[in-house]
Simulated scan of single mutants.
Amino acid sequence: MRIDVEDLRVAYAGRTVLAGVRVVAEDGEIAGVVGPNGSGKSTLLRTVYRHLRPTAGRVLLDGADLRALSASRAARHVAALPQERGGDFELSVREIVAMGRTPYKRAFAGDDDTDRAAVERALADTGLAAHAGRRYTDLSGGERQRALLAKAFAQDPDVLVLDEPTNHLDVRHQTELLTLLRVRRRTTLLSLHDLNAAAAVCDRLHVLHGGAVVASGPPREVLTPALLSRVFGVRAAVTDHPLTGDPLIAFDHRAPAGG
């Protein structure tokens, strides 16, 4: 399914956070949202997964206004991993992941074979099958992150909305997660601080700065030295990754942008 964010404006506490934002993620495409801290990335994603109501504009799912859907129907289509990870759940990892099946159930209904298969696949995909019986509260930060990702995968959505999904993950698990997103090929809208990871995994990038989209397109076209200097305030060179051929950003850690 395709996601279109049309002329989105979000304001709260007397401050405009997003103004006239237009973002798209085509069917099966991984679209990244990047930008400096405070640029509005999380606000944009919260609006897409309906945690925030926009002041103006709309979010379309295959042309239909996402706000017009019931909460349960919307949850069948869109799964989210917010930055706010919630409290310490006194549940097992398997129970946390099984919560992703809630949109498909009637009240008090038990798990069926489809539910169980979805949960087991999500556990395996995130490397948590051996930890399924552990309590969530006993997990490390990275393991908790993977458990919540598994919950989103178990939801079997058409669209994934992931806010900094690689937070707390070590290099191996970051790489495995990004590979998994490419293999699964669900329409995905995600924010990333790591620009090299964004360049490697995303088909399209949207750059936010000051609550507005200042550039959109393929990573190689978007991540130029001029944009990195103007938006992120860094001096950098962009070359080809020696192993993958993806754009590789080399930052000058000794001098500021323009220095």
Score class of each variant (00 low, 15 high):
Ser140Leu: 12
Ser140Val: 09
Ser140Ile: 02
Gly142Thr: 03
Arg144Trp: 08
Ala147Gln: 02
Leu148Asp: 13
Leu149Glu: 03
Ala150Trp: 11
Ala150Ser: 13
Ala152Ser: 10
Ala152Lys: 03
Phe153Arg: 08
Phe153Met: 09
Ala154His: 10
Pro157Val: 12
Asp158Arg: 14
Val159Ile: 14
Leu160His: 07
Val161Met: 02
Leu162Glu: 04
Pro165Asp: 04
Pro165Gly: 07
Asn167His: 10
His168Gly: 06
Val171Ala: 09
Arg172Gln: 03
Arg172Ser: 05
His173Gly: 02
Gln174Val: 00
Thr175Met: 00
Leu177His: 05
Leu178Ile: 07
Leu178Tyr: 01
Arg182Phe: 06
Val183Gln: 12
Val183His: 03
Arg184Tyr: 00
Arg185Leu: 04
Arg186Thr: 10
Leu190Val: 02
His193Pro: 13
Asp194Gln: 07
Leu195Tyr: 06
Leu195Asp: 01
Ala198Arg: 05
Ala199Ser: 10
Val201Cys: 08
Cys202Val: 11
Leu205Ala: 10
Leu208Trp: 11
Leu208Gly: 12
Gly210Ser: 11
Gly210Glu: 14
Ala212Asn: 04
Val214Tyr: 15
Ala215Pro: 11
Ser216Phe: 13
Pro218Asn: 12
Pro218Phe: 15
Arg220Val: 14
Val222Thr: 03
Leu223Ala: 06
Leu223Tyr: 11
Thr224His: 05
Thr224Gln: 07
Leu227His: 07
Leu228Glu: 04
Ser229Pro: 00
Arg230Phe: 14
Arg230Met: 09
Val231His: 07
Gly233Pro: 04
Val234Asn: 07
Ala236Cys: 11
Ala236Arg: 03
Ala237Pro: 00
